[in-house]
Lab assay of single mutants.
Amino acid sequence: MATGGRRGAAAAPLLVAVAALLLGAAGHLYPGEVCPGMDIRNNLTRLHELENCSVIEGHLQILLMFKTRPEDFRDLSFPKLIMITDYLLLFRVYGLESLKDLFPNLTVIRGSRLFFNYALVIFEMVHLKELGLYNLMNITRGSVRIEKNNELCYLATIDWSRILDSVEDNYIVLNKDDNEECGDICPGTAKGKTNCPATVINGQFVERCWTHSHCQKVCPTICKSHGCTAEGLCCHSECLGNCSQPDDPTKCVACRNFYLDGRCVETCPPPYYHFQDWRCVNFSFCQDLHHKCKNSRRQGCHQYVIHNNKCIPECPSGYTMNSSNLLCTPCLGPCPKVCHLLEGEKTIDSVTSAQELRGCTVINGSLIINIRGGNNLAAELEANLGLIEEISGYLKIRRSYALVSLSFFRKLRLIRGETLEIGNYSFYALDNQNLRQLWDWSKHNLTITQGKLFFHYNPKLCLSEIHKMEEVSGTKGRQERNDIALKTNGDQASCENELLKFSYIRTSFDKI
């Protein structure tokens, strides 16, 4: 039985969820670079991206490699990797027998973001014989899940209580170790020597080791999670996991709180800001991140802002960003909400898709409305799209047979046209069989910064309504002859009103 693990408890099935942008060198404390989270699957090609990484700022997932063999891993080693800020997950990587050479110096898994409450997941690794993470000293947050690894031993010899604050939620089941077939031998045991430290858990006094050649490092209890030197002297209180010299914040392997210019500090002093819960960055760093993602459509890219001495992905609820200094300031009234469309555009074809934009005031991208039916549609669209004030790209209304009016965009005031449909149009209306009105132009103002209007096959939309939009939106004169079809717009509506004058002759039985 794995020490510190839980057996036999019912657990939810383990679901495996399925960018080499360097964020800056980590400095003297770390020998390499800070790398983003990685999802490495199918083959070993991307694994080489770990070569210079000291910190993975995010998670590391290595999974679904069915053609790899043990010899493929023999020359692979990433000794610079010290810390993973989120979680480490391995799933069905064939041929991998140990992690001792792959990650010989991995010391800390912070667990800032977890995989279903777990910071370390080893699942269905069919050839893994031992973990071998002999320098792993601290899992700051989260638990361990090690399950269905039929060859995995050296679990009962690990004292997880020396690595985690609590072992109650560890789930370590259905491994070879369960069948008591392992016969784990710690260093020196074969020669009758006791080389590794022994600890007591559940009444068992057991030597602690990761492999037959690597003991588990056990520091004096007084050192807590700070770690200790090879001689057993406690590291500085700002260290986490390990250090090369005692009581020196510049000799830590990793930091308990924050890293700044080669030393570990309790908090980031001005003019620095907390970033990702582990390091200090200056304003320029946060500003660069903001600008890199301002026009990016890459998933996970955030326009970072500053709030409460932190550089964070977005302002919290009730705050909006001051564009001059990136500071989050309290909103006066309802907060603006910028919604970034991942692929640059979004099609609204149902109430469900409209709900995804609920509360958005600025759309960074283009909207395509293609709704053919739905219950209580006008009210639903207004509830979900009615706060949109600005669209950076274009607005396209296409084959939306259920629409009679666009009044559900009740606050839309600006279409920038930074991206144009077919390279020309910022407003595009095609084949809307029941569209009769755009907006009530006596109450609604709309500016279209650039781009043209396109109207074709809107049989109940009168040309007068379209011409009014040209005047109000500032697009009059931009359109070419064929942009607004004269014969297919309003051709099934009563669009022309003329005053009919009647004269009559009164007659009676005795007068003409």
Rank of each mutant, 00 (worst) to 15 (best):
K193I: 05
P334H: 10
N42Q: 10
R41G: 06
T199M: 04
L120N: 01
I158R: 07
W278H: 10
M83A: 03
R256C: 02
R297V: 08
T320K: 03
L327R: 13
T140K: 14
F78P: 00
E180Q: 14
Y304M: 05
V55F: 03
S244Q: 08
P246Y: 05
E124P: 00
D159Q: 13
L136V: 07
F285M: 08
F205S: 14
L120W: 02
C215E: 14
N42S: 10
A198Q: 02
R113G: 12
N150Q: 12
G37V: 15
C186I: 09
L164N: 05
K224N: 05
G318T: 07
G37D: 12
G192W: 14
V108N: 15
Y273D: 01
T221P: 03
K217Y: 05
S143L: 09
V144L: 08
V218Q: 13
N195V: 12
C215H: 00
K176L: 03
M65V: 05
F275M: 04
R74L: 02
T85Y: 02
N43W: 07
D75N: 15
Q276K: 07
I146Y: 02
V121L: 03
K191Y: 10
D178S: 08
Y273V: 12
I185C: 06
N42D: 10
D39A: 12
F66Y: 13
C286S: 04
T199R: 08
G241K: 05
P249A: 12
D159G: 11
D248M: 03
R110N: 03
Y94F: 07
Q61P: 00
R298W: 12
L240S: 05
N42C: 10
L50P: 01
L106C: 00
Q204S: 08
N242K: 06
R110K: 09
Y304N: 06
T85N: 03
F275I: 02
P70W: 14
I82Q: 06
S237D: 14
V55D: 00
T85V: 05
L327G: 02
T199K: 08
G111N: 00
D248W: 03
I146V: 10
T85H: 04
K251L: 08
N282V: 04
F78L: 06
R263W: 15
S112M: 15
C280S: 00
N179A: 10
Q287W: 15
P104Y: 01
H214S: 13
F285C: 04
S98T: 10
Y273R: 04
C293K: 03
P316I: 07
G142M: 01
G241S: 08
N150V: 08
H28F: 13
H214P: 06
G318F: 06
N257C: 01
T329M: 10
P271T: 12
F205Q: 10
C215F: 11
L152Q: 07
S225A: 10
I109W: 00
Y87A: 01
A119R: 00
I222Q: 09
G192L: 13
S323P: 14
S317G: 08
Y259C: 14
R110E: 04
Y87G: 01
R279G: 14
L133M: 04
T157R: 13
E207V: 06
C228Y: 03
G333P: 03
Q204L: 09
S77K: 06
M137D: 02
Q216V: 12
L81S: 00
L88C: 01
A254V: 08
R41W: 10
E97R: 13
L106R: 00
F275E: 00
C235L: 01
I122T: 03
L136G: 00
T320Y: 08
Q276V: 10
D86A: 02
C264E: 00
F275H: 08
K191T: 15
D261I: 04
G300T: 10
D184I: 05
N282E: 07
I201T: 06
Y259P: 01
V108C: 05
T68G: 08
N325R: 10
A190F: 09
Y87Q: 00
C234P: 06
V34Y: 08
T250K: 03
K100A: 07
T229F: 13
D177A: 15
M65I: 03
L233C: 01
E180G: 06
L131R: 01
Y30T: 06
A119W: 01
C196M: 03
H307M: 13
R110G: 09
D159L: 07
C252A: 00
F103S: 00
N52G: 10
K224D: 11
S143H: 14
C280F: 01
I40Q: 02
D288N: 14
L50M: 11
S284P: 02
C182A: 11
C268Q: 01
C223H: 03
I82L: 08
D165I: 06
N322W: 06
C252M: 03
G132T: 02
L63R: 08
I139C: 02
K217S: 10
Y304L: 04
R256W: 02
I158P: 07
C301L: 05
I201L: 13
I122K: 00
S323D: 15
G111P: 00
V305G: 07
C153L: 02
C252T: 02
H212M: 02
R279L: 12
T68F: 07
S296N: 14
P220N: 07
H48N: 15
R110C: 08
S323A: 12
L47P: 03
K129G: 04
P334D: 04
C255Q: 01
H236R: 02
C223Y: 02
T199V: 11
H28W: 09
L106K: 00
V218S: 11
E168W: 11
R113P: 03
K100S: 14
S112I: 15
E180D: 04
C331M: 03
D261V: 10
E207S: 06
R162C: 14
F78E: 01
I56T: 01
P104F: 01
N175D: 14
Q216C: 09
